[in-house]
Each structure stands twice: as C-alpha cells, then as structure tokens.
Simulated scan of single mutants.
Amino acid sequence: MRVLIATDTYPPDLSGSSFFADRLARGLAARGLDVHVVCASDTGPRTDVVRDGVALHRLRSVPLLIHPTVRFVPPPGVHGVLRRLVARVRPDVLHTQDHFTIGRAAVAAAVRSGIPVVATNHFMPDNLLPYLPRWLHAAVSWLAWRDFHRIYRHADHLTTPTRVAADLVARTGFEREVEPVSCGVDLSRFRTPAASATDPRMWARKELELPDLPTIAFVGRLDAEKRLDELIRALARITARVRAQLVLAGRGTRRAELERLACAEGVREHVHFLGFVPDEQLPAVYAAADVFAMPGVAELQSIATLEAMASGLPVVAADAVALPHLVSPGENGFLFTSGDVAGLAAVLTRILTSPELRDRMGAVSLAMASRHDQDRTLERFEEIYAAVSAGRGPAAKG
C-alpha cells in the first residue's frame, strides 16, 4: 500500500504533530508500506530525499516569525504543487495531519483525484492564541474551527489522539464521527537505559552532565501554553525543603524569559536548560528524572508524557484538556489546577521525598503506557487505510 502523509510540521520542527507524523511515517515504512511525506523544507529550498525508508517531498519554506521552532510554506502555488505530486505519487490513501497550507492543498488534490482521505486532528486554538492579542481570541478561535470544518468534512475517516480530543471537536459543531487513536509510544525504547548501567538514574545524569540530585523533568517546547513559569515558581518553594533540580529539554520562544524568572526566584542554579535534545538522547532525559511534570494547558494527548510513563516515571500534570486521560491521581501521579503553584509544589515535593511512592507510581505509569503501544497505533492506521482504500467508508474497529 502506498500512503502519502501530508503535514505542515515535520522534524526538525518541534511540535507533537511533527513528532507523531515522523514516527508514523517511519513505523509504517518499517511494516512494509510505501510511505511518502509532503512537508516543509527544513532548509528553505524544495528538495526530495529518502530517509529511513520514507520518501520526503519537502516544499519551499520560510521561518515562521511568531514561532521560530517551525517553518512555514507560503500558500501561493501550493495547490498546483500538490496536484502534480499526487498525480506523480498516486497514493492509495492520503493521510493529512492538519488543515493548514499543505494539509488543505493535499486534501483538495486527493478529492479531485478520487483518492480516499484519512484526517487526524492535532489542532486546538489554544496553541495559537497566546501569540495574539486577547481581544482577538474569541474571533480567531471561531474562525479556526470553521476552517477546520470546511477542510475535514472531505475526509473518509477522521481520528484524533484521545476521546477528550474527539469530544472537543464535537463541541465545535462538527457532526462527523471522530475516532480516538493514540499517538502511541515505543515501549522498549524508553526502558533501554535501565539495561545500560547498575544505576540508570546516576548513569543518565552523568551522561547529561547534571548534578546527582532529585530531578523534575519537562520535555517539550518552551512556549507560553506550556506554563513553565509555574514550574519554576514551584521549584522555588520545593528547594526551601528539598535540594532538587528542574531539567527543561527543548527550545522555544520563552527561554530567555524563563531564565530571567529563575534568577528572580533564586533558583537559576537549580534549573538546567538542555536546549534541543536529539531523539536518540531523549531516553536519557527521562532516565535522569525522579518525576515528570507537564503544566501545559493545550495538550490533546502529550507524547512527552507518554514517553515519561513508558520510562517508568510518576507524572504531575495540569488538570486540563486531555492530560487527565494519562494521570490517575494517587496511582501514577497527581493532577493540579493550573495556576496553583503551591499545589504543584506540594505534590512534586511529596514524590521527591518518598522513594517508595515514586517507585509505586512509576510502575503504574509503565503499566498504563502499555495500553499505548506504538504497534497498536500503526496496526490501527493500517486497518483504516485498507478500509477507505477499498471504498468501505469509515473503517470499523477490529
């Protein structure tokens, strides 16, 4: 089967959608599918390359000024480029990851050519609104969802990572069924460090040149919707009782601001900014930690949280959107109310000061992560592709 994946964000862009599209493409190729991806060029000019068994068709791009971790494909000419690409590749199915410049052009080209469309939604306006004036939020949110409806109504089958995310789409008035399909996680990959040393935590800290201290980890973009200021303010409360450290892996628009905040809170020496961490080094980041924190309020699933759980870590997360889907309070971690810095500090301190609690919660996280095995995700998408390409309409589970 030949699949064309359309996505406006793809590595080295930093986003959950980007990482999912990359792992989906490589995973499907490893299972024997003929996989093509159309995405933004990582350098600017248009290129066609094959990487990890995946044919990448990278379109001319420019930096996105409001979001330096993402590149943008200008709309002029894109519809023509996608029509020609679809005619040349002749996929059995198109799988779009979004409804922006590339996604909408790819859907239009597929519909025009009679090619079935699978559409996955990773979008919610909350990812965009922090970069706009508050008075525009309601109007932009309404327009963004209307645009989503206009493009995704052409899909033969729709998915999104969680039931919460599917319900969110339904509340916008979208009347089509949306199936929850987890982004998935490679369970074996994130347990690898445990076999690398007698004490994997100490090994990982040495590998990352971190002090051997109780460690809170965050992996993701250092952007407004992640609410990392709350984590730094919480750390100031924690260090009054426990000599702990915070490790932030990722880059984003708020790094300089977060560094200034850490200085103002008196915890700069306890906050380690790792910057961008290559995919192959991510297991070491999780292995170095005692607890994973995700204070973001715009997560439709959170791949990083899944990876932390697959690494056997307790999770402390904001009680927002889909994060409660991954945290069972008191079992594998705790939820806190966004903005409640004291509450966040309290539950982090509780985990950091109790090795028994940490180990028990980590074991539950690992068990919960097993339900999100990447192989299940890949198998389900293969079933969906087979159904829609055979003209059977929306693919029934199982």
Rank of each mutant, 00 (worst) to 15 (best):
D52C: 12
G53A: 11
G53W: 02
G53I: 13
V54G: 05
A55W: 01
L56C: 04
L56M: 07
H57M: 04
H57T: 05
H57L: 05
R58Y: 00
R58A: 02
L59D: 08
L59E: 05
L59P: 02
L59G: 05
R60T: 11
R60K: 12
S61D: 09
S61R: 14
S61E: 06
S61F: 00
S61L: 06
V62N: 05
V62S: 08
V62C: 01
V62P: 01
V62A: 03
P63G: 09
L64V: 08
L64G: 08
L64C: 08
L64E: 15
L65T: 09
L65I: 12
I66N: 15
H67N: 13
H67T: 07
H67D: 12
P68K: 03
P68G: 01
P68I: 07
T69C: 08
T69L: 06
T69H: 10
V70E: 11
V70G: 08
V70T: 14
R71S: 11
R71M: 06
R71Q: 12
R71W: 09
R71A: 10
F72A: 15
F72H: 14
V73W: 07
V73G: 09
V73I: 08
P74L: 13
P74T: 05
P74S: 13
P76Q: 07
P76K: 15
G77H: 11
G77Y: 14
G77P: 08
G77S: 06
G77T: 09
G77K: 08
V78E: 00
H79Q: 07
H79V: 10
G80T: 10
G80K: 07
G80R: 10
V81F: 10
V81S: 13
L82V: 09
R83L: 12
R83F: 14
R83Q: 12
R84F: 03
R84I: 00
R84Y: 01
R84W: 00
L85P: 03
L85I: 09
V86N: 00
V86L: 02
A87Y: 03
R88F: 11
R88A: 13
R88D: 12
R88W: 05
V89G: 13
V89T: 10
V89F: 09
V89Y: 02
R90S: 10
R90I: 08
R90F: 01
R90D: 10
P91H: 04
P91D: 04
P91V: 06
D92N: 14
D92R: 14
D92A: 14
V93T: 06
V93K: 09
V93Q: 04
V93P: 01
L94S: 03
L94V: 04
L94A: 11
L94I: 03
T96F: 02
T96C: 14
Q97W: 02
Q97K: 02
D98I: 04
D98E: 05
D98A: 11
D98M: 04
H99A: 12
H99C: 11
F100G: 15
F100T: 15
T101D: 05
T101E: 02
I102Y: 03
I102H: 03
I102N: 12
I102Q: 01
G103R: 00
G103Q: 04
